[in-house]
Structure formats: C-alpha cells, structure tokens
Design a protein around this nucleic acid. Structure first.
Lengths: 192, 192, 192, 192
DNA sequence: CATGAATGAGCGTTCATTCAT
DNA sequence: GATGAATGAACGCTCATTCAT
C-alpha cells in the first residue's frame, strides 16, 4: 500500500499535455500560449507547470519523446540477418510509415527541431536514440560512395533525404507510395 | 524646408533594416523585437514601419530577397554549352560558395524558411527565383534515376542535399571543400 | 486505525510552522510563499492550512505570539520593590537581551508590525500583552517630563527608543552593551 | 530649436506616476498592481515602464524623492545664527508640519522604508539628503547626554522620536500641536 | 488528519503598432 | 519623413487555497 500519497502526478495528464502540445504546435506554432495547450489537454493553466517547469522544458521533453518514438518506430521488426538493401528498405519503410501515420508528430518535431529553445543537451540525447539507425547507415557508408565523408555527414544526408520524402508523402498522400520508393532509390544511390 | 541634408536615402535605410534583420535573426531568432532590428539598423523603431507595414511583411520581403540572392549567386557565370556534370558542378560550387561566404544570410534564411510567418505567396515567389536552377535539374532528372519522380520531388531532394552540405560547410569550415565535394558526389549519384 | 505512530503532535507542528515562518520572513519577507514556510517546517503545504486558516491568520497569530513573548521576557524577574531607576533598567535590560538573543524574532516582528495584514484587533491584543510594561512607564511618566503627554504617546516614545536601540545592538553586536546603555540614558532622560 | 524629438518624456507624467504611487501605496500597500498605479496616474499600463524600468525601480526613486523632499522641508528657513534650542525647534516644527500636511507621503515613506525592495544604494542616497539635518543634531549631541553615543545612533534616536511624534500627530490631529511639543520636549531632553 | 496535485485569478513585463511632434 | 513616447493586449509563471486520496 502506498499511503500518504495524495493524488499522485498522473502520467495520463502528462501525456495529455504532450499530446495537446503536439497538436497545438502544428496549428499555432511554437509561440502558442501555454494556456491554450493546457486547455486543449483538459487541464488548468497552472497544472501544466506542475508537470513541466517551464514552457521550454515542455518543448524539450516533447522533442525528445517524439524523436525517440520516431527512432523506435523505424527500427521495429528489424532483423539483422537480411541483406543490406532489404534491411535498409525495412527501416526506411517503417520510418516513412511513421511519418505518414503521425503527420502531426512529424510537423511538431520539425518545428521543435529548428527552435532555439531546444538545448544542445536535448539534441544530444535525441541523437542518441537514433544511434542504432545511424549504425546501420554507418555499415553501408563505409562500403558506398560516401565512404570518404564523415559519419555525421552521411547521417545528415540520409536524414535530409528522409525529411524531404516525408514532406512529399504528407503533402501528397495519394502518391505516398511512389514518393517513398523514389526516396529510397535516391538513398540507395547515395549510400548503398 | 530642410531638404538635401546629407542623410541616407530611403533605399539605403530599407537596406540597412534588412541587413540588420538578417544579423539580428541569426543572434536572437525570429522573435527578436522590431525595436532591436531598428536600433541595429541605426533607425528609429517607428521608421521601420514606414518601410515595412508589419514585422511579418519585413520577414517576407527579407526571405524573398535572400532566396533570390542565393539563386542569382548560384547561376552566376553559368554557360549552357558545357556537359551536364560540369554545368551542375559549376552551379553547385557557386551555391556552396554563397553559403560559405554569407553564413548569416543562410542561417537567417533557414530560420525564415521554417517560420509560419512566411506566406505561401512569398514561398511561391521565392520558388520562382530558383526556377532556372530547377530547370537545370529537370534536364538531368529525366535521364537519371529520379526519372520516375516528380519534378518538384527531384528539386526538393536536390535542395535538401544542398542544405545539408551547407550546414556542414558552415559548422566545419576547415573541411568545407571536402564536404562540398562529398555533397556533389551524392547529388550526382541521385540525379546525374 | 493506525494511531499512536511516533509522529509529532499537533502543537509541535503548529509551533514548527511558526518557527519556520519567523525564519522565512526574515530571509524572504512577508511575500514568501506559504509553501516555503511549510517546507521549512517539515510539513506539507496543505497542512499549514489545517493549523492556520489563511496566510494572514498565520501572520496575525505569529505577531501576537512574538510580541507577547517579548513582553514576557522584558518583565521576567521584575520586583516591584526596587527604586524606579533600578526597576526600569532591569526591564530595559531584559528587553534588550531578548532582542539580542532572538534577532530573527525581532526582525520578523518588525516586518509584521508594518504590514497591513495585521488587523487592528491583533494589534490591540498585542498591545495588551505589554500592558504591565506600559503601567511601569505610566508610573514614571506622571512624575517626569512627559507628564503632560498622553499615556499612549509616552509608551510609543519608549517603544521607539527601544526599537532603535535594538536595531543598533543587532547590527553592531560588538558595541551592543554601549548601545544598550546609551539607549537607557536617553530613555531615562525622557521619562525618568 | 530641438527638432526631431517626438513627444519628449514628460516630467509631468513621471510626476503623476509618482504621485499616484504614493496614493496607491497608502491605500493598497506595496503589493498594489502596477496597473493600478498607472491607471490612477491616468497613464497606460505600459507607459509606467517607459518612465521606470521596473516596479522596484519606481519604488526606489519614489523613496528617494519623498525622503529628500522631507529633508528639504525640514531645513527650510533655517538660520544658523539662533541659539541651539531655537534652531532645533525650527527644524522640528518644519519636519512635523511636513508630516502633518503630507500624511500620504509620510505613510508611503514608512512603507517603503521597511520594504526590502529599497536597495542599500538608495538608502545611502536618501541618508545623504538628510545630512545637514544630521549635522545639526551632531553639533548638539557632542555637548549633550548622548555625547558618548555614535553619531548614527544619535541620529536614529532623533529619527525615531520624530516618527513616533508624527504618527500621533497624524492619527490624532486634534492634538497635533500638543504632540508636537511633547515630542520636542523629549528630543530636547535626549539630545539638547 | 496528512499529503501534494489541482485550480485559476492575478501580476510584472514585453512589444508590435500608432501617432503626436 | 523621422522620431520615440504611448498604448494595451498578451503571455509565462506564481501562489493561496481547495480537495481527492
């Protein structure tokens, strides 16, 4: 029994705030009032601040959560046995699927990513969650045309191809599949 | 009437404000006060609004100017006669040189590009200034691996490769040349 | 029922809160959050309000307690037999000693005294606890130079001399004794 | 001609804010909203901050102005020739008159004086404006019963007698004159 | 009765924009 | 046109108090 704990901080509420923030950032941008986020989360104005010390804090935690969620989605069902192209395509598909099925998360992530509110520490932590993904790329880079570039550079190129592909999948869902494939082709040409 | 006093003329002032805005956006972000921009431009805060109706207006004009400046720089000295790879490399080099020698403009452009203050109209106009550049890509796409993708998609891919390369050139100037080349190799693989 | 667990009893808690309030008022002023006071008292913020209905209530009770404590200290060991000067000096010494050995109480009292949160009723009650002290003064006033002033006025004068003396004793402890004597001399001149 | 100065910062407005602050502090205390002060001064919310950087700043400047105003009032018409008692009484009268005719200023001053928003620097500056007054006391102290006390201590005693006397004059205006005289008698006994 | 999360009114300050000079 | 004071809506955050546990 956990006595003497009055109304423990509810993970549900925390989550509701994060979800609301995601939604609100997409529609109103990063300058959206915290009050709007709180309201959207069905929570009082002040409560937001019992879950997140500051607005910046909320944004940093959200960024980290979205990014690691994305990384986890990309790597789901990954099996090391397959040949490289297959492995890479699996991950790429996962990644694109995540973007296509969570367009809000992706747009919020995009906005947060360019904000100067996100601290270097948060960025570093987020980077780490994508490590395994980066490792996969790394294996390929060393044998591919980018072999003379740095690891970070290769990863950034891959990332930018992914982002661009996602943009097109989201803005033009009818041709999502085609964009996904074209993006992969480009990826494969560059890194494979 | 006290005309003809030696003080900067309108166009100079307009330009001073734009230059100041570029600088200030880099250091303080898009939420920097207009008063700061005005001050940095050596102009009263009220005067800023005789040259730009609103802050958003200033940002849109600045975005357009920076973008078209970038496009012009990329196409400078372009000669249609050469073979494709040479043509492409010439443009690519110009482009990267511009980024390397105007890091502030580029960073401001990056910030403006993701802002939701920039209207679709402005984006379209900016897009148009890069038309010739896109046309060049277009010629190549139709014969290259992206032949089954849309023109816009190909252009976006090229753009994202360029942006990524610029980032690395700016953050790691010591290896700027190497990044430039590696970026071009990736580009050539994708579109060439 | 889980009675009789070894935890501090109510009066202890009440007292802890008052002590904490004294300390916190000195360091943070009257606008210090109740949460801070509660924390400092080792009590939950909610509990503070089971002992005191409102923050104002806490402050009023604290004021009263500090003031009456001060009065009691001043009158300790008072013997009616001695001659006036001796009696007065005894009380004065006690009073000054209390201030010197409880500087926090005194400073908190000073802050509370000027606050408009302290109600007239509280002030009146506090006044009453100093009645015996006032009576002592009264005896003297009627024979001294203030004989034509009102009782309250004389008491206020005495009080202000005491406060001033205390200030100097606290801020300049090295010369505490000298200040104490000088203060008494002034007092004696005025009322003796 | 003072061209190019658009709507210069008006001393009237600054003064109106200070006057309003004085009034509002008396009725609502130091925690009164700046908006109330601004409103009372017939000025917009934001304007208050073009005249005073922060609320604290306003309070510090007000404290200084009130204190120096009081000192100036006390010394008005002072002639060095008269004998000490006469000189002292003249100053004392002025002082008490000031308090009696500006009860709001005095009460505001009292509140500000105990606030921890007033910086040591401000206090020091305020102290300086009362220097001449202190000098006058000093002349007397050296020959009177406080001769063995420090200059500051003597000044503080005098001040506290004055404050107490003022309190009574303000709260009991019918007997103002009597209180004034009684206060002076006490002062003379202590320092004369 | 203890706890600490929930609430929401309230406040100091900022800043785009206007307008008197 | 140029200037910079004036305006007031808006926002992030605090905190006394309440109340579910």
């Amino acid at each position: 029994m956990v006595a003497n704990i009055a109304r423990p901080k509810s993970q549900d509420k925390r989550h509701a705030i994060m979800k609301a923030a995601t939604r609100v950032i997409v529609t109103q941008g990063l300058s959206a009032p915290t009050a709007t986020i709180a309201h959207e989360a069905g929570v009082s104005n002040g409560s937001l601040f019992t879950y997140f010390q500051t607005k910046t804090d909320l944004f940093n935690q959200l960024y980290l959560e979205l990014k690691s969620g994305m990384a986890a989605a990309a790597l789901e069902g990954f099996s090391a046995g397959d040949d490289f192209r297959k492995q890479l395509f699996h991950v790429w598909s996962n990644w694109m699927d995540w973007a296509a099925s969570h367009p809000e998360k992706r747009r919020a992530l995009a906005q947060l990513g360019v904000s100067d509110e996100i601290t270097p520490a948060t960025r570093a932590a987020a980077h780490k969650t994508m490590e395994s993904l980066a490792d996969l790329m790394e294996q390929m880079r060393t044998n591919g045309p980018l072999r003379s570039a740095s690891k970070d550079f290769a990863a950034a190129i891959v990332n930018s191809l992914a982002e661009t592909t996602m943009d097109f999948m989201i803005h033009d869902p009818a041709n999502a599949k085609r964009h996904c494939k074209a993006g992969f082709e480009a990826l494969w040409r560059v890194v494979g």
